[in-house]
Structures are given as C-alpha cells and as structure tokens.
Amino acid sequence: MSPTLMLNLEEEVSMVLFGVGFTMLLLHRNLIKKIMGMNIMDTAVYLFLAAKGYIEGRGVPIMTDGVQDASAYINPVPSGLVLTGIVVSVSTTALMLALTIRLYERYHSLDLDRILISMKMEEEEQL
C-alpha cells in the first residue's frame, strides 16, 4: 500500500462512513435505520471537514495568552461549518423522526415497503 494511505486516514474513514450511510439511507427498508444512515452520512462529512481543518501541532482557534498570529491556531472555518451542519442535520432528523412516528401510528410498521402496501390496501378499501 502506498504511504499516502496512512497519511489520509481520516479522509478514508470518512469516505467509507459516507458510503455506509448513503447505502443505508438508500436501500434500507426500515425507517429508523434509514434515519441512522442519514446521520452516519452527515457525521462522515463532519469528520471529513474537521480533519481538513485540523493542522498538526496547533491550538484551538480561541485566542489564548494574547497570541494573535494565525499560525498558532488551526483553521476555524471547517469547525464553523461542522457546527452549522450539525444544526441542519438535527432538524432534518427531527422532521424524519416525526414523520416516522406519524407513519407508525397510522400503519403500525416501520418497514417502508409494508407501509406502502398497507397504504394501497387502505385506499382500495375506501374505494
């Protein structure tokens, strides 16, 4: 294996995680697992961003001891992005969970396929 593989460990992990999350969100039939997949996917991106912002041997970007030199701190922008991203993903997760609860109350199932089937059956009964 090439040496760069070890050098970019965080990025690789985040990509693998992203793939895992993406596949879960896309293919899993269970709604809760879909939501978990979405969160894994988002977290992977945050890991990626955090890894990008981190510079070996530097401090947290909070001014300490009056040092104003930028080279003393890591890049603060990705951290800001991660924070914003977390807020966004929390709200989407909340919405998806709320929807899931609604669907569960109505169809007593978390399986999307089964929900679709019972929805169709319900409609046929109405007709």
Partner: peptide, 18 residues
C-alpha cells in the same frame, strides 16, 4: 398518501443534499 410521499421525498432529498 401524503405522509408516505413525504417520507420518500425526505429520503431522496437527504441523499441529494448529502
């Protein structure tokens, strides 16, 4: 219908925004 449509929309949209 609209609830299931919403969850499908949400899943696809999350994939897209991811």
């Amino acid at each position: 219908r609209s609830l299931t449509a919403a969850i499908r929309y949400m899943v696809m949209s999350s994939l897209g925004s991811g």
